[in-house]
Design a binder for these strands. Structure first.
Length: 305
DNA sequence: CCAGGTCAAGGGAGT
DNA sequence: ACTCCCTTGACCTGG
């Protein structure tokens, strides 16, 4: 069975926003009080979006990493309205569990666990831990089903050394982060294919005894592949998920389908490529600029799913 | 009120 | 050297 979902923003609910933030100057002048206000609003709207999803038969949803503005700069417990926030998180988590919803995060490209710079690694560890704290406060089980997905995003001076740094720095993550982390294949020749990541996953399992599942992304694979058919590679990735339903990213290239002047890696507004996966259970996050609209549009075009 | 310039962060690739 | 692209366009100011 395939379940479809989308990422962060809901375009059907125009007045719901999960991304309220501020520029640095405002953060410095208004501080945690204002962060708190925005976070509370973002959370309430996140809850409404998840409820809307369930009403519309959508059970997979990527949470926005911008629910808490500037959360790389403070501890969540230090927010003035932390009690409200915590109770909202609990309610959301309860709803998620009761309705069989799957949520997860995809922190931004600035999170580079394999960086050569200690400061970058430290910042990354803190920010990933912040993400896992949110999932923990929701009361969601500590496993990659409620995951935090990142790219390796570094290959200096070569892939082997970067992978070694990733493996070493994995130890710096909190226990919850270690249990939730997943890794995704890249869209650049110098970076990592699914098979590269499966090897890394096996090394992490050997060294730390935890799963580090591989999230397969079809658009990235079309740009940087293992020269093996996607369906086969998806089944290989599935093994890194043990008995958990694998997460898949699916999208189409904007260059090919909508605007030739774009780079091939840019995401299209809608999904033009039929979702083809091996038999079995899969949760698919559609990465298209038109979000829930592209999901609904896809379902309309491919009724047989 | 709104259009448009600007915006924390890492890294790779295209120009 | 600069811009685009990725997680995710949104914030804020000058007119």
């Amino acid at each position: 069975m395939i379940r479809l979902g989308y990422c962060c923003i809901n375009l059907s609910l125009k007045d719901k926003k999960v991304n309220r933030g501020m520029i640095k100057k405002t953060f410095l002048s208004k501080g945690l009080n204002y962060c708190s206000e925005l976070a509370e609003q973002n959370l309430i709207d996140t809850f409404d979006i998840i409820k809307w999803n369930v009403d519309n038969n959508i059970f997979v949803y990527r949470l926005s990493s911008n629910i808490f503005p500037w959360f790389s700069e403070y501890n969540l417990e230090d927010l003035p309205n932390f009690n409200n926030i915590k109770s909202t998180l609990c309610q959301i988590g309860k709803f998620i569990l009761e309705n069989n919803v799957r949520v997860g995060f995809h922190p931004g490209p600035f999170n580079v666990l394999a960086s050569e710079k200690y400061q970058v690694v430290d910042n990354t560890v803190f920010e990933i831990n912040q993400h896992s704290k949110i999932l923990d406060m929701m009361g969601l089980p500590k496993n990659p089903y409620y995951g935090i997905n990142i790219h390796i995003n570094n290959s200096k001076p070569n892939k082997a050394s970067a992978l070694q740094r990733f493996e070493d720095n994995f130890s710096k993550l909190s226990n919850s982060s270690q249990k939730r982390l997943t890794i995704e294949n890249d869209d650049k020749q110098s970076l990592y294919t699914p098979l590269d990541l499966i090897k890394l996953s096996n090394r992490i399992k050997e060294k730390y005894g935890c799963l580090l599942p591989v999230v397969f992304d079809n658009l990235h694979y079309s740009i940087h592949s293992d020269l093996l058919c996607p369906t086969f590679i998806v089944s290989e990735c599935s093994k890194t998920w043990s008995d958990l339903t694998p997460l898949i990213h699916w999208s189409s290239s904007k260059k090919i389908h909508e605007d030739p002047s774009c780079l091939q890696i840019a995401h299209a507004d809608y999904v033009y490529d039929k979702i083809v996966l091996p038999n079995g259970n899969f949760d698919v996050e559609i990465e298209a600029k038109c979000k829930d609209l592209s999901l609904l549009n896809y379902i309309k075009n491919y009724q047989n799913i």
